[in-house]
Design a protein around this nucleic acid. Sequence first.
RNA 1: UCCUGAGUAGCUCAGCUGGUUAGAGCAUCUGACUGUUAAUCAGAGGGUCCGCGGUUCAAGUCCGUGCUCAGGAGCCA
Length: 449
Amino acid sequence: MKSRYKSYKTVEDLPKLAGETVTLRGWVYKKTGKGKLQFIQLRYGTGIAQCVVFKNNVTEEAFAKAKALTQESSLTVTGKVVASGKAPGGYEIDAAGLEIIHISQDYPISAKEHGDSFLIEHRHLWLRSARQHAIMRVRAVIIKAIRDFFDASGFKLMDSPILTPNACEGTSTLFETKYFDLGKAYLSQSGQLYAEASAMALGKVYTFGPVFRAERSKTRKHLTEFWMVEPEMAFFDLDDDMDLAEDLVEYIVECALRSCQKEFAVLQRDISALERIKRPFYRISYSEAVEWLQKNKVPIIRKIDGRDVESPFPWGEDFGTVQEEALMEQFDKPCIIHRYPAAVKAFYMKRDPADDKLSLAMDMLGPEKAGEIIGGSQREDDYDTMLERIKEDKLDEADFKWFLDLRKYGSVPHSGFGLGVERVVKWITGAKHIRETIPMPRMIHRIIP
RNA sequence: UCCUGAGUAGCUCAGCUGGUUAGAGCAUCUGACUGUUAAUCAGAGGGUCCGCGGUUCAAGUCCGUGCUCAGGAGCCA
């Protein structure tokens, strides 16, 4: 693309420019000095180039400027590109001239270690560090892979509203806001119900946007605001739904492996664990999973009178972190668990025709303690049954009239799922905490920056 | 919301059964150095020991309380 805007040579261009004189712009990532020699690691975008300023090669003024530079000061530097085995990246700039744009004072993030709390308070600056760069680049690749996957498979992007009149699933706590004279509105926790309407209009659709959960969660895998992609497909049954989920995840990992080798090196990510992520993944039913838990003596722990009481895992309970992690320890690839008890799943999921106690629901759990990365189901498509479920869950019928219309006018079997982008980024990058996987995380005690 | 832990220099932390002027490394500033990449060496500055109240001759240390943060549970993607 030919740009009408200013275009500068950047660090990435250096290998092509050996022997030439270039002017680079950027920030000081690190600086070390040794008398008449100053070494500046110049940061621009995602690359770092070493610039060497030798006193005898530049004016006294330029050398004084080089000495005055501090971490994260901005500058332009002009010099010859030379190959050097000692320079990170293999090339360095032998500086001939140097101009300071701005001197940074007391930059708070040093090369030394910092605590979690300190770093997240300085998220706006933390993003400048190499590790965070790498995670953000992988995130961008993952998001592009998701869009490419759907766009190339006949899906249409259909955005869902963020302001909604009610809870989609009736369970999670919602963020509340005023909506003119119509009373309260809530920030969406899922675009799914709207995606169903879109799927009836366009066949195969996906929504991709931020969703909000006002749960008072305090864990390394929860955010109050996160990005979710939700495909919804007319005429798909649960098996189609699970196949699609596998195809998507396999494709995401494949793209990341193809485009993010440098990033994985920075992150010291074990690539071999990702190279194993090939279809078919594992697939077991909820009932099979419960049997496994019972056979392997993985208990359920309940609080009774403030004390932890262990008992064998009973059929009918939802899995907690303990059960999920125990199950996943046997797998080196994602595993889909399907056909959960209807009682622990959402009202809009279709019951299993073979067993009314079961929902045609599925969750995909990732390996390496990634946890739940996908949740989905075949949807209830019968008008009367859906109406009954809405009443059972004590939801306001008036809010769901339009949703019931989808079952009234040419209802068809359909399915979909939601994939949590940050959960996937966390798994693929090996980030310790989900707060590192989004530029500006929103968490229960954190809204700045 | 519940359980557990933490709060001492800009950052990361040490500081014993209460005791005299509260320490280290890094960062910052000054000086030396032509190959650094966590540079090295010499020197300097830097503290409301989270707030409030209490016990005591004496509190960073003990007690009470409040605030802030972290990890986990539940909920979920």
